[in-house]
Simulated assay, not measured.
Amino acid sequence: MENLNNDTCSCNFIHEDVVNLVKDNILDENTINNLSELFKAIADPTRIKIINILINTEACVCDIASLLNMTQSAISHQLRVLKSARLVKYRKEGKVVYYSLDDYHVNDIFEKGLNHVRE
């Protein structure tokens, strides 16, 4: 019977060269889980907006809430998620807490994703 689904393989042949090339480079479960958690943390429109703001400058919760027209409580919740995923960090100056990207990798991840969706 003809395979009506052209995007699946209709044979049962293992390409040993492909398997051997890849098997030593497959990520361990812990790394896979950590990477999955990173992408989950980014996978929210509000958190993407926050990262976009923090690419440009550090900002406090009040600034971010004002820019996004959201409550400070809602922004604080999203910042906790980003902080636990090591995407943002904070520093205190008196009573004000300023948030910024955790490191340059966050900007790289964001820019690569942005370039991908714009292509």
Rank of each mutant, 00 (worst) to 15 (best):
G94Q: 09
L67A: 11
L82K: 01
F39L: 14
K23D: 13
N34A: 10
I50P: 03
T71H: 07
I32E: 08
L82G: 00
G94A: 09
E37Q: 14
N25F: 15
I75T: 05
S76D: 07
L67Y: 04
K83S: 14
E58P: 01
S84W: 05
L38V: 02
A74P: 01
Y90E: 13
L21C: 10
L35Y: 03
V88N: 10
E29P: 00
K89N: 12
V61I: 12
P45D: 07
D44Y: 01
I42W: 05
T57A: 13
R91A: 13
R86E: 03
N30V: 08
C60H: 05
D24G: 01
D44T: 00
Q78E: 15
A74V: 00
A65F: 07
L79V: 02
M70F: 01
A43D: 15
A65G: 11
A59Y: 00
C60Y: 07
S76G: 11
C62N: 05
L21M: 12
A43S: 15
D28H: 08
C62H: 01
T57M: 10
C60R: 06
K83F: 12
S73W: 07
C60T: 05
H77R: 03
L79Q: 00
C60K: 09
S73C: 05
I53V: 11
Y90C: 14
V61F: 04
R80A: 13
V88C: 13
V81K: 08
L38R: 03
E93L: 12
D24W: 01
I42D: 04
L54F: 03
V97Q: 14
V81D: 12
A43M: 11
I64A: 12
A85Y: 00
I51C: 03
C62I: 03
L21I: 05
I53N: 09
N30Y: 07
V81R: 08
R91N: 05
N69Y: 10
A59M: 02
H77W: 01
L67C: 08
K49G: 04
A65E: 09
I26V: 15
D24E: 03
R91E: 11
A74D: 06
I48E: 14
K95S: 12
N52P: 02
K95V: 10
D44I: 00
K40Q: 04
E29K: 15
G94L: 12
Q72K: 07
N56Y: 04
L87F: 01
M70V: 00
A41C: 07
I75Y: 04
Y90V: 08
S36A: 11
D44L: 02
L54S: 07
K83M: 11
D28W: 04
R86G: 02
G94R: 08
